[in-house]
Design a protein around this nucleic acid. Structure first.
Lengths: 196, 196
DNA sequence: CATCCTTCCTAACATCTGTTTGTGCAGAAC
DNA sequence: GTTCTGCACAAACAGATGTTAGGAAGGATG
């Protein structure tokens, strides 16, 4: 609604909230803080949103949807496991790069969701992780990946690397998201060591 | 003071606080919550600690000291860069494993420190990271590591992997901290790919 | 015994929390 | 011109927040 390509007021509220939640953390960010950032009174926020947690929910679940869509595309491809892994990593990073702020909230603040939303969120998350784990296992089965490495460790290392990216990645930096994903995939698959 | 090998009451308070901060986050954890866990009234906490933030400070800076000590030992060694990296990783993981709860707080909640402590903490942290970066650069210089990978990416990937460990590592699991560090080092240095 | 130290208590404080209620005003739709 | 809708306000709410003041019980130390 409202003006052409612009944001709804509600979307503006959610965006600013994402910035605030990222910076101070959900629990330490007050609705009065948020209102002040938008130049309005705290009570006015409730013309646009139902509750503080509704904001967190939409941030978390919207990101989750994007991640799933990205991985769906990858799984359709008929390529090797290492190539699938590479594409999955790049996809994940590109989804994050599209909204680094929401990504940071998604990863750091989801625990403040109340039940039953928290449970739902964690289920989505474990499912996503398991789909990556399946790719790893496929690679081990086909002999592409070594079978000496603990799969839980491998997949958690992967996720840790991915999920911390919003904390340090500078979107104005020389390296763009696709190249970053490429390098990260290379590093995880081939390692740091020179394979001379 | 008090009983032989046991914990001071103050130490008990800090320990329980660490558990609470890890579980709910610093901001969402109230002093009344903490008191309840200890079976006392909130006001009684102040016989042992000066403020809520003092607890966070001691948790964060005590861990920081342990990490530094560990890395100091590694830097003394006269070994190759990849060996130094391996030792640094194992050391870091062993420090974490000694207190997974405090480690989680260290990594997730330090941002709630007020100035000037926050600044001090971040300086310690960047210094620690840079020392790992130096090891990486040494490895590139000596030709052990490839020079095609962005060093910031590499070191941040390393740290992400390390720092998320307290979130998923089960101390009762089959794999012990040293072996975990060994595998993680192998994965980062040699990659997932089979080097047949 | 007297003194101290540790540990805990009750009561209270000022401030901040998310949220509700009722109201008003602008512009768009009919 | 009337109605509707989006957006904002002030005032207030009930409860939670970190923290302080002052005191009391109990054990250890002199």
């Amino acid at each position: 609604m409202s003006e052409a390509g612009n944001l709804t007021r509600k979307e503006q509220v959610i965006r600013k909230a994402a910035e605030l939640f990222k910076e101070k953390g959900y629990a330490a960010a007050s609705m009065r803080d948020l209102a002040q950032l938008l130049g309005i009174e705290a009570a006015s926020l409730y013309s646009h949103i139902k509750s503080k947690e509704e904001i967190l929910r939409s941030l978390c679940f919207d990101m989750a949807t994007e991640f799933r869509k990205s991985l769906n595309e990858v799984e359709k491809q008929n390529v090797s496991a290492s190539e699938k892994l590479r594409m999955g990593i790049i996809g994940h990073i590109q989804v994050m790069a599209k909204d680094l702020t929401a990504s940071a909230v998604f990863m750091n603040e989801h625990r403040h969701l109340s039940e039953p939303y928290l449970r739902d969120f964690l289920l989505l998350r474990i499912n996503y992780i398991n789909r990556f784990k399946t790719i790893l296992e496929e690679g081990v089965r086909t002999g592409e990946f070594k079978n000496t490495i603990d799969k839980k460790l491998a997949v958690m290392t992967l996720f840790s690397s991915l999920n911390w990216m919003p904390m340090w990645y500078d979107p104005d930096s020389a390296i763009d998201p696709a190249a970053l994903g490429d390098q990260l995939a290379d590093m995880l698959i081939n390692g740091l060591k020179k394979t001379a």
